[in-house]
Amino acid sequence: MLLEIGGSINMIGYALATLGPAIGVAWIFASVINGTARQPEARGAMLGTAWIGFAVVEALAIIGIALAFVL
């Protein structure tokens, strides 16, 4: 059996590029959970800000997949 690895090196780059956004998204929602545990009535305000932060972080991941296919 001949072992062969094919594919594009861009995907390795994309895999590396997802690590940052993954940690970022995890951290954002971990903070929301923490904050909700401390102060449940502030959940709405925290989630509103969290979605904006999530959007900024997630944009990096989506730019990563776009560039992995385009470049």
């Binding site: 305000a45 800000t49 979605w51 904006i52 959007a55 900024v56 944009a59």
Partner: peptide, 15 residues
């Protein structure tokens, strides 16, 4: 632009 629209939609929560 996407983040701008998201801020417009979600950022309206005033505590």
């Amino acid at each position: 632009l996407s983040i701008y629209v998201i801020v417009k939609k979600m950022g309206g929560v005033k505590s």
